[in-house]
């Protein structure tokens, strides 16, 4: 979809929602990877027993595996929401300077980090 030539082609002052959504999207991805690498889940879920522990908790003996993914999502969502809200409070002049292209560049930049974090699985 490209622009209609009769519509404005200049960048408008970024709205607060636009800034929130942009910063939320960027921060969510980065925080998610950080939480994964640093083992910072908000909580740990033990699916075998339906137990939930706050923060990081190792698997318990004879209770099956521990899952951190839900906790990473919660940590990332909370952190990204805070950062997005703070960014939305910035003056319009500064909000308009955040490059929109970061929204698609950050996920691409995170891919090698994710692949490295999964190096355990790429054994031959």
């Amino acid at each position: 979809m490209s622009a209609n030539p009769e519509t404005p082609s200049t960048t408008p002052a970024a709205s607060r929602f636009e800034t929130f959504a942009l910063v939320f999207g960027i921060a969510f991805g980065i925080l998610y990877v950080v939480c994964d690498l640093a083992a910072w889940p908000m909580f740990t879920y033990h699916p075998g027993t339906d137990r939930i522990d706050p923060g990081y908790a190792p698997a318990r003996r004879d209770e099956g595996p521990a899952m951190y993914w839900y906790g990473w999502l919660a940590s990332s969502a909370l952190g990204a929401s805070i950062l997005g809200a703070l960014a939305a409070l910035l003056p319009a002049k500064i909000r308009g300077k955040i490059p929109l292209s970061l929204a698609w560049m950050v996920p691409i930049a995170l891919l090698p980090v994710l692949l490295y974090s999964l190096k355990f699985y790429w054994r031959w």
């Binding site: 979809m1 999207g25 990473w72 996920p107």
Partner: peptide, 29 residues
């Protein structure tokens, strides 16, 4: 699971860009 999660976080901005599809400043993003 990692990529789908990162994609989830991008949905609000993606929605915003498409809801303003007539704005040429958003075309590339």
């Amino acid at each position: 699971e990692h990529l789908a999660s990162i994609g989830l976080g991008l949905l609000p901005f993606y929605w915003h860009l498409w809801k303003n599809a007539r704005n040429a400043a958003y075309d590339s993003a």
